[in-house]
Computed example of a mutant assay.
Amino acid sequence: MLMVGLTGGIGAGKSAVAQRLVARGAVLVDADRLAREVVAAGTDGQAAVVEAFGPAVLGPDGELDRPALGALVFGDEAARRRLEQIIHPRVRARTGELIAAAAPDAIVVNDVPLLVEAGLAASYHLVVVVDADRGVRTRRLVATRGMSEEQATARIAAQADDAVRRDAADVILTNNAAIEELEAQVERLWQDRLRPYEKNLRVGRHAPAEGRLRVVPPDPTWPRQAARVIDRIRHALRPLLGGDADVTHIGSTAVPGMPAKDLLDLMLAVPTLAEADRLAEALGSAGLPRRAGEWHDNARGLPGKTWPKRLHGSADPGRPVNLHVRVTGSPGWRFALLMRDHLRAVPAARDEYAAAKWRWAARHSDVASYAEAKEPWFDAEAEAAHAWAEATGWHPPVP
């Protein structure tokens, strides 16, 4: 079951995206609708609201007078929190019931207006944000919801900043033009990413890697992309570990200004490989199934020696990831952190590696031969990095 978080600022067109996804076969969990259901007439939720805010919030039909309730909580932080403490637990419980009733191969779209504000992004396999310019959203609210321009502007300003929302997004759907353009974006998302992601997740496999080598210029968003995946890993493992997992961004995409394959390398540090195996199922459920086979690190500086590890790959075809699960203190663990920090700190070493990457990419069209060509450079980098560590007093970061 693939869990998708869908959000967007008021007036951006989130509902239109949700409707299109449902038409393609998604199961929709609409947080706004559930928030109304759990305080409908006769529910214990409504009774709790009346107890907290008084009988004036009830209309003559026995339902909540939403404008009256809104007037009480809008701009009053304490009142808003009281209302959330009544509604949110009930919405979570009802959401759990709907998800439990969905088929194992379902793509569940959770339409959550305040997904970012509530800090929920890490609980989904993928976060989709519907985005539109503020002027466009204001005009829509005036035209379709009967708001004044001042009211529309105030409602938009009360939500998360657009940049913060975009920062949480794995996918951004831009809705500044005709509805047909938005629908085309949704269709591509469904066919190219959601359906294959769900299948990969269900059968426990990583998305097929592209055989042809593609080294690309540095992307300044790589660190933020890595941070989102790290947040998901920590969320998935927290119940098993009782705290945050030690996960870090390593490899070329962790070095500013470095060209690389568009593949995020992350590292999960564990005390033993038995612990790595204990965590494997939770990682797979979070979208990072274990890759089959035996995997080892070359212990640089110890000729002929290797060090075992586990390797997980991303089931998401839109975001390739290698998650290296290494024992804390092992040579592979230490070298991954040392090389990253050495290249970050020494521009000449970074630039030399970047130039070499472009040369190797020009000579090798497949990933395997490219990786083999890099091995002598890694041996030399190990010596240079170790010398740098001794000269500077570098030690692996303490988690």
Rank of each mutant, 00 (worst) to 15 (best):
V142L: 03
P104S: 11
V27C: 11
L72S: 03
E97A: 12
F74G: 01
Q46P: 14
P104D: 14
D111M: 09
D170N: 09
D105Q: 06
V130H: 03
T138F: 05
R166C: 10
D32S: 08
D131R: 03
I156F: 07
G62F: 06
L126A: 06
E84V: 02
F74T: 05
P67W: 04
A31M: 14
G70E: 10
D131A: 02
G42A: 08
A168R: 05
V129E: 00
V142P: 01
V57P: 05
R24D: 10
D167A: 11
T43R: 13
A56N: 00
V49C: 10
D170I: 02
G59A: 14
L64M: 04
A26I: 09
R81E: 13
L72Q: 08
G75A: 00
T144V: 04
R82Y: 11
Q159S: 02
E149Q: 12
L114M: 03
Y124E: 05
A93G: 00
R139V: 07
R94V: 03
Q85V: 06
V73R: 01
L69C: 02
V50H: 03
A52R: 14
D105F: 10
A56K: 03
R24Q: 14
R33E: 15
V39P: 12
G70F: 08
E77T: 12
E97R: 15
L72E: 09
D162W: 01
F74V: 03
A31V: 07
L120C: 05
R33L: 15
L72H: 05
R80N: 01
L58D: 01
T95V: 03
V27W: 14
D133Q: 06
L64S: 03
A101D: 15
T43P: 12
A100N: 06
G119V: 07
V29P: 05
